[in-house]
């Protein structure tokens, strides 16, 4: 019998893959709600199906299709991802264990995340992009039979969810950033990986996702 108590925030293995528990709902039959870290897919299961893992320094894993290594070498800087592995929220903070957030500003005592949480420097592990030398992958509980390329970054064309929020959709208005003239355009058709923009432009999805070239303004269908 497994007496392990699942809590919100735990990193767990489910079907051999690394997940984070985002909620425990005792009223449901499938009471443990997980999110697969590699592609942020939601999975529902129960406590017997999961095995806990405590992330530590030099562990590396794929989060949202990109590989990161946990590190304590330096303090976080603006734009870094952090894993809050040792949460000590102040009375007005709402983050919980193993939350992954993006740093917005850095102060002496700690960082402020884009989610407006104040996190002290000893509460988080920095997520350095890539697999650092000497890091140990924790993506799978058992690596037997897992192809090596599964540990590589997944490019945006491998997005499992084609309706992912970040990908261009019909009606998106973009502004071109690297042009002298002001050029605003709208996505009018998407065929495979090619996006057709108003004004007779054809670009690849990847091209349009480059934030130094194009900036997303809003979608026509948004209120």
């Amino acid at each position: 019998m497994k007496l392990f108590q699942v809590r919100k925030g735990h990193f767990v293995y489910y079907n051999n893959e690394l997940h984070r528990v985002y909620g425990v709902k005792p009223m449901y039959k499938k009471s443990v709600h997980l999110i697969r870290l590699r592609d942020l897919t939601q999975v529902l299961t129960n406590a017997t199906g999961v095995e806990r893992y405590k992330p530590k320094e030099l562990d590396s894993f794929i989060y949202n299709n990109k590989a990161y290594t946990l590190s304590k070498d330096r303090k976080a800087e603006e734009g870094d991802h952090i894993l809050i592995h040792h949460p000590m929220p102040d009375s007005l903070d709402t983050y919980s264990l193993n939350e992954i957030e993006v740093v917005e500003t850095v102060e002496k005592q700690g960082v402020t995340t884009t989610n407006s949480h104040g996190v002290k420097h000893n509460e988080y592990l920095l997520m350095v992009p890539g697999r650092v030398n000497g890091s140990s992958p924790i993506d799978y509980q058992n690596f037997e039979g897992i192809p090596a390329e599964n540990l590589d970054d997944i490019g945006p064309h491998h997005f499992t969810n084609p309706n992912s929020e970040q990908l261009p959709t019909l009606g998106d208005i973009y502004i071109q950033k690297d042009s002298n003239e002001s050029f605003e355009t709208m996505v009018i058709a998407i065929k495979g990986q090619t996006v057709y923009l108003g004004g007779g432009l054809e670009v690849s999805q990847e091209e349009l996702m480059k934030t130094d070239k194009w900036e997303f303004l809003y979608n026509l269908l948004d209120k």
Partner: peptide
């Protein structure tokens, strides 16, 4: 005029 960009932050929350 210029709606706030969601591209930088869409997936991080």
């Amino acid at each position: 005029g210029h709606k706030r960009s969601t591209q930088h932050s869409g997936k991080t929350n």
